[in-house]
């Protein structure tokens, strides 16, 4: 690309950024803060309640995560999760609920393409990268830890 064209593109993109409507940062952040906080509080209350039944902390944590995942996926199935996210934004995407939604939503979407290459494969289309990066990071951290100690 010639330099002149490059400069023209930069000028145009600069102009576009100026006229483009901006996201409502403050109201989005407030919504995210309150819904995110609420999801965590729900997790905390569940955790305390399960621990009060005599289960240890680690088991209770796992059960809490499973309950939150199931709830988010069930709401996705009913078709309301994405409506709530329109309001809540990162408040529901960043908690484990967002991960749960990213698993079930493509799986539902690709039902008609079959249960193996449709649902089965697409289940991981958005969640796969999370697992790949998460697992890899944890293994590398483990190896580094083993080398240091």
């Amino acid at each position: 690309m010639s330099q002149k064209k490059n400069r023209m593109n930069q000028k145009y993109n600069y102009y576009v950024n100026n006229v483009a409507p901006k996201p409502k940062y403050i109201s989005n952040c407030i919504k995210a803060f309150f819904t995110g906080g609420t999801v965590c509080i729900i997790g905390f209350i569940l955790q305390k309640w399960i621990q009060s039944k005599g289960l240890d902390q680690k088991t209770a944590s796992s059960i809490v995560i499973m309950i939150l995942i199931f709830s988010a996926q069930f709401l996705t199935g009913l078709g309301v999760f994405d409506d709530i996210v329109k309001f809540a934004g990162a408040g529901l995407i960043v908690p484990i609920t967002g991960f749960a939604n990213s698993i079930v939503s493509p799986a539902m979407e690709y039902k008609k393409e079959g249960i193996v290459l449709g649902v089965g494969a697409k289940l991981f289309s958005l969640a796969g990268p999370v697992l790949v990066w998460g697992f890899s990071a944890s293994v590398i951290i483990g190896i580094i830890y083993a080398i240091i100690t």
């Binding site: 409507p21 999760f81 996210v85 329109k86 934004g89 995407i93 493509p106 539902m108």
Partner: peptide, 17 residues
Amino acid sequence: ERQYRFPLEHGNQKPPT
């Protein structure tokens, strides 16, 4: 939507543009 963007039930916020 499913071809170019996200599944219908995927939770996300569309930018104002």
